[in-house]
């Protein structure tokens, strides 16, 4: 069956591409504001108008705090905590 790992799940239709999650993730790692240090990457595809959100390997879902920082700042609620099997299948926690 493979092990489950916690991850950040994204709803690209709800995402407004405000990049707050990128800034928050970078803040968590460096205590500075930025984007390059982020494990979340957001871009808007200009042709379709939709957001593309990637969570990079290395994200530890902010293990030390109750709510991952990217989720805490996501005003449109496009991010949520979920879990992922190694096969790549994703499933929300609740």
């Amino acid at each position: 069956m493979g092990a489950w790992a916690e991850t950040i799940l994204a709803d690209t239709r709800a995402c407004t591409a405000c990049l707050a999650c990128e800034l928050a993730c970078a803040f968590r790692w460096s205590k500075k504001a930025g984007a390059a240090q982020s494990y979340v990457r957001v871009r808007r595809d200009e042709a379709s108008g939709l957001a593309d959100i990637r969570v990079l390997d290395g994200c530890d879902v902010c293990r030390s705090v109750e709510t991952p920082l990217c989720i805490a700042v996501c005003a449109p609620r496009a991010l949520r905590l979920g879990r992922r099997r190694r096969t790549g299948t994703e499933e929300a926690v609740s």
Binding site: C15, S48, A75, P76
Partner: peptide, 19 residues
């Protein structure tokens, strides 16, 4: 409408995307 878009770190996202 296909979605909303926002400026940097804006929780309001007052702009709509249309197709």
């Amino acid at each position: 409408e296909i979605g909303r878009t926002a400026c940097t770190a804006c929780p309001t996202s007052c702009t709509h995307m249309y197709h």
